[in-house]
């Protein structure tokens, strides 16, 4: 089936039921929720530090890949954690905390994107001529070393192709392939229906396949 993408091969496999084996983050979040409910906010803050430690790295990876700016990613992750603490009492302990947190993180990232769009009406950034990303986003030798995992040209092709995806496709792709979320989890995190998630994912992969396989994907829906 040339040109068609079998999502079952490409997307992460569903994880086992999480209610029976809650993740460490879910356990910790339930504990913090209990502390806040009892009015022990200082103790809750101390425990929250552990939760931040647990999720911070993953959150920064997702936010950075989606926003493509270190400062914005930093702010978005901070905002997401603060919102989590503010609304921890609304967290339903029987559901995986990671998904709830991802939803908040996605919203915080979208807020950052909107804020950046407003700023860019007034500020014009100088851009790197090679790949179009803002100059300050290009790290030095550390990144070029890691980029050897992909050939430089291929890296540029993939990043440009991902960046050119429509917002929802890019969000779904980022959560699926960088955060390794299943379509069901993405559906829970974004509020999209599972079928919609799969459609966005299919279109994103079709475009990427076209770019990587030498024929340009033209679907921008």
């Amino acid at each position: 089936m040339a040109g068609q993408t079998n999502l079952d091969v490409v997307v992460p496999a569903p994880r086992p039921a999480t209610s029976a084996h809650p993740s460490p983050a879910s356990v910790l979040a339930a504990e913090i929720k209990g502390l806040v409910g009892r009015g022990e906010r200082d103790a809750a803050r101390e425990r929250f530090d552990g939760l931040v430690l647990l999720l911070q790295r993953r959150a920064l990876r997702v936010a950075f890949q989606y926003l493509r700016d270190a400062a914005d990613a930093d702010e978005a992750v901070q905002d997401a954690f603060v919102k989590v603490f503010m609304h921890i009492e609304q967290y339903r302990s029987e559901l995986p905390f990671d998904v709830w947190f991802t939803r908040i993180l996605v919203n915080a990232s979208l807020d950052r994107l909107k804020a950046r769009a407003r700023q860019q009406r007034w500020i014009s950034h100088s851009t790197d001529e090679e790949n179009g990303w803002p100059v300050e986003q290009i790290a030095g030798n550390e990144v070029s070393h890691e980029r050897r995992l992909l050939a430089k040209e291929r890296w540029s092709e993939v990043t440009e192709a991902v960046a050119s995806l429509p917002d929802r496709q890019r969000l779904v792709f980022t959560l699926c392939h960088l955060d390794e979320r299943t379509p069901a989890e993405i559906s829970a995190a974004t509020g999209m229906r599972p079928a919609t998630v799969r459609v966005h994912l299919f279109r994103a992969l079709r475009k990427l396949r076209g770019v990587l396989g030498g024929k340009a994907g033209t679907d921008t829906r």
Binding site: R61, F64, A70, A139, V143, L149
Partner: peptide, 12 residues
Amino acid sequence: RAAAHAEADAHF
């Protein structure tokens, strides 16, 4: 994914 994670980790 591996390259993207490494890129993000280099920033943070």
